[in-house]
Design a protein around this nucleic acid. Structure first.
Lengths: 200, 200, 200, 200
DNA sequence: TATGAATGAGTATTCATTCAT
DNA sequence: GATGAATGAATACTCATTCAT
C-alpha cells in the first residue's frame, strides 16, 4: 500500500532540511579553515555545486549561517551536559565525563567551535554569547563541585576553566577529521591531560 | 655642547619607530578584541587621533600590520625560548620555565596570540606559519625530552603540545590587562595546571 | 441538452482570461500603492494565493503586467473619448463631459494612471507613450476648440492641458476606493473646478 | 592682507557642501526623469565624472539622496509659506501668492516634487510624509479661509486642494527647464487657472 | 608629515525568470 | 495548471589604498 500523498511533502521538507544543513556545514567547514571573512558566499556555493543565489533559498544571510554554526555546536554541547547529568561520583569524575564528551564531539560530524563570534551582530551575538556562557557555567559548576568535594585541587575556578576551554577551542586549528588519530583516542588523551592537571 | 647633528636624526628615527610601534599595537589590540576583518583602518587611525591616510606613512598595508603583530609575539616567544635555554634539570622543569614565560608574556604589554593567521597571504602567511611552527617545535622538544628522561608521562607529544598551546591561545579571548588577577598569578596557575597535567 | 464541446473550451478561455485579469489588477493595485519596483512578483503572487512561478502562466513578465495596466486605463480612456463624441455644444461642454468621464473612471474598478512609465522599456514604453499622447491630444483638441468657439479662455493650450492632466494623475496618490466620498461626487467636483478654471 | 589660515578650511567645507549638493541635484534630476529605481548609483556617479565609491564620500546611501531631494523641495516650499505670510487680503489672494511661489519654485534650480515617496523607508518616509502634510495643511488652511471669507467657492476643501497639488506634482513629468516657456509665464498661468477654478 | 578626496576591486544580497516534475 | 528549486544579472555598499597638495 502506497501512501505517497502524505509522504511526498514529508520527503520534500526532509530534503529541504537536509540541503539547508549541507549548506551550513559546508560553510561552517570553510569558516573553520579560512575564517568567516575569508570565505565568500560564492566559494560556499561552488563547494556545493550551487549558484550563489541558490544559497539564499536555504538561508537568509551569511551571518545567519555563522549563527547556525554556533547554535549547532552549542546545542550539541548542551546535549552532552544533559547526558552526563547524574553520572560520576565526584566533581572530577563528572567533569571527566563531560570533557570527554566535548572533545569527542569536536572530532565528529564536522562540528567545530568557531572563533568568529565578533562577526555576529546584535541579537545573534547576544544569543551565542549566552549559549557559550551557559556551557562555561556548566563546566565551572563541576569544577567548583570538585573543589568542594576534594576531588579537584583548589585554585581559581575561572582560570582553571579557561585553561580547559582553550584546549578545546584550539582543536579547530589543528584537528582534521582525516588525521591519523581517531577522535576517541584524542578525547581520551584530553580527558587524561585535563584531569591530571586539576586533580587534588 | 650640543650634538644636534647626530641626535636630531636619531630622535627622528626613534620617534618614527615609536609611532610605528604605536600604530601596530593599537591595531593589534583592536584585532584581538574584534578580529582583523571587523577592524577598519579608519578605526585604527581614529583610536590614534590620526587620519586614515597617515597610517600609510608608518605601515605599507593593513596586512603588514597583522604580520608585524604576529612577528612581535613570536619574536618575544623566541626570546623566551632562548632565555630558558640551559636552565632546568629535566624536560618538565625546562617546560615549566618556558610555559611560565609564555603565559607571563601574554599578560604583558598588549602582546597577544592573534587568531587571524588565515587573513595573511602568501609570504606573510608562510613566515608566520614557520615562526609558529618553530615555537611549537621548541615546546615539543622539551615535551619529548621530558618523556625520555621520565619527568613527563608518555603520550602522543603532538596532542600534548596542542592541548597546552590551546590554553595559551585562548587567553586572547578572556584575558584583559585590567582584570582582577595579575599576570604573574595567572602564569603561576598556568604552569601548575600544565605541569600537573603531564607530569609522569 | 448539453453543449460541452463548445462551452468547455469557452469557459476555459474565459477562466484563463479572468485569472489573467485578476493578476494584472492585483499587481496594478500594488503598483499604484507602493510603486512598480517596490512590489515584487512574490508579493503579487501571495496576494492572489498563488506561487511566484504560477504568475508566469498568465503573464510573460513583470513589465508586461505594467504595460497591460497602462493599456487597460488608456483603453478605457479611449472609450470615454469615443463615448462623448458628438455630444456637447461647445468645446468647454465637450471637455466637461470627457473630463467627468475620466475622473469617474479613475474612481472605479481599481483603474489608475500609474506613474512608472519609465520602468517600461523599448516597445512597451513607446506604445504607452503613444497612447498617453493620444489621450492628451484628444483633450488638447477640445481645449483648442473651446478657445476657438469662445467657450474657453485663451491661453497656452499645452499648459492648460498639463494642469488638468496633473489633477487626474494625482488621484492615484490620494484616492482610495473605500474613502468617504463616492466617485461620482469627486468627478462632479473635478468637472466643476476644471471648467471654472478655464471658462472664458 | 591675506587670511588664508582661516579661509582655507572655510573654503574646504564650502567646497564639500557644494559638491554634496551637486551630487544630490544630479541624482535628483535623474530620479525625476527616470525614477528612483531606474537610476543606479553608477549612473549618478558617471554623470558627475566621479566613481561610484566617491559618491559615498558625500552621502551615506542612495536613499539618503532621495530623502535629501525631498527635504530640499519641501524646505523651499516652507520658505514660500513663510514669505507670503501676512500678505494678501483674502484667502484667495493669499492662496494665489503661495501657489504662484510654488509653481515658480518648481521651474527653478532643478527643484522638483519627486514621486518616489514609497521608496523611502522608516524614519525617512515618516519625516517626508510629515513635511508634505505640513505643506498640504498650509494650502488647505488658505482654502478654508477663502471659503469662510467668501473669496473661494464652497466645496470639499480636501478635494479642492488635491486637485491643485496634482497640477503642481505633474510638473515633474512635463516641465523641462530648457523649454520654450519661462518659469514665470508658467507660474502666472497656473495662478490664473487655479484661482479661476475656485473663485467664489 | 599629514590629509582630503577619490578609486578599484570585491562582496552580500535581491529579484525576475526558468524549468523539471 | 502549478510549484519547488535554481540561476544570472544587476546593484548598493565597503574598504584598503593612493595621490596631489
Amino acid at each position: 500500500m502506497r501512501d505517497n500523498s502524505s509522504q511526498s511533502p514529508f520527503n520534500r521538507e526532509q530534503q529541504y532540511a537536509a540541503k539547508r544543513k549541507a549548506v551550513i556545514f559546508a560553510a561552517g567547514g570553510a569558516f573553520r579553515r579560512r575564517g568567516y571573512h575569508n570565505t565568500s558566499m560564492v566559494e560556499i556555493a561552488k563547494s556545493l555545486g550551487l549558484s550563489k543565489a541558490a544559497l539564499y533559498y536555504y538561508v537568509k544571510s551569511k551571518v545567519e549561517i555563522l549563527y547556525e554554526c554556533h547554535v549547532i555546536v552549542y546545542g550539541a554541547m548542551d546535549v552532552c551536559v544533559k547526558s552526563v547529568k547524574g553520572q560520576g561520583d565526584s566533581g572530577l569524575e563528572k567533569l571527566k565525563l563531560l570533557y570527554g564528551e566535548f572533545a569527542s564531539l569536536l572530532t565528529r560530524d564536522g562540528l567545530a567551535l568557531l572563533a568568529d563570534v565578533d562577526s555576529l551582530k546584535g541579537d545573534f551575538q547576544a544569543e551565542v554569547s549566552a549559549r557559550r556562557g551557559k556551557i562555561e557555567r556548566a563546566v565551572t559548576r563541576l569544577v567548583k563541585m570538585g573543589m568542594a568535594d576534594g576531588s579537584i585541587k583548589k585554585a581559581d575556578p575561572k582560570v582553571t576553566v579557561f585553561f580547559l576551554m582553550g584546549a578545546l577551542n584550539w582543536m579547530n586549528v589543528w584537528y582534521e577529521a582525516d588525521g591519523r588519530m581517531s577522535g576517541e583516542v584524542i578525547a581520551a588523551h584530553f580527558v587524561d591531560q585535563m584531569s591530571a592537571g586539576i586533580r587534588a
